[in-house]
Design a protein around this nucleic acid. Structure first.
Length: 212
DNA sequence: GACCAGGCACATC
DNA sequence: GATGTGCATGGT
């Protein structure tokens, strides 16, 4: 695992994720990017930013119908507008609207609470924990599954938890490491696996991943 | 004009 | 527990 990380890091360099200015923006982005390309999310985020809506208080106050129009470019906009409102409600009900207060929760307790919010599943919850709260939870996404599966490390139908455990059981429990590793996997997936599925220029070419 | 993209909830069997 | 379906835009 560490070897793979080293190869990716050497090839791509540090990714400095998540691409956002504030933890709240990370959370909004994590919800908006569900099954959606990031370029579409960027437009929606820019729209929110332009209207000074990227704060918990502002999202709490805005009608869901207006929110939906502003995030139109990110797709599934009616659902996602409700999801953003659901999270905001959760944040105010549990923590008075303060992310700092929310981040004081125990990591696994908070994960359980986030998963109960309608619209937040495993990947979104873990993205919030890792990239907004800087807590050590490995994020598994479609790229992660595809790449591990192609290298024969997991079955294509492996569960989210199985894939996550595969990383977390074999790496130091370090948020900085998890952050960089997942970002590198996304970079690899976007840039190489897609355009060159034959893996000719993949930095992982020739590597046999060791299952332990 | 298909096909895809950093999911998730819900219905049904 | 597994499998199927709706949600929706913008780029290739």
């Amino acid at each position: 695992m560490r070897l793979i990380y080293g190869k990716l890091y050497k090839h791509f360099g540090p990714q400095e994720w998540w691409p956002a200015e504030t933890p709240f923006e990370v959370i909004v982005g994590a919800i908006l990017t569900q099954n959606t390309s990031w370029s579409n999310v960027e437009k929606a985020i820019a729209n929110l930013k332009k209207n000074r809506l990227l704060t918990p208080g502002a999202l709490k106050a805005i009608p869901v119908s207006r929110l939906a129009k502003l995030i139109r470019s990110s797709g599934y906009y009616n659902q996602k507008a409700r999801k953003l409102k659901n999270f905001t409600r959760f944040l105010f009900q549990g923590y008075g609207g303060s992310l700092d207060k929310m981040f004081q929760d125990d990591r696994l307790i908070l994960r359980g609470k986030l998963l109960e919010v309608n619209g937040i599943g495993f990947e979104t919850a873990d993205s919030i924990l890792l990239y907004a709260a800087n807590m050590p939870m490995f994020v598994v996404d479609a790229y992660t599954r595809r790449i591990l599966s192609r290298h024969g490390l997991i079955r294509p139908d492996a569960s989210y938890s199985q894939i996550q455990d595969y990383f977390m059981d074999n790496l130091k429990n370090d948020a900085g490491l998890f952050n960089e590793f997942h970002a590198l996997i996304v970079r690899l997936g976007k840039e190489i696996c897609k355009t060159a599925p034959e893996c000719g220029v993949c930095p992982l070419k020739g590597i046999t991943w060791e299952v332990s």
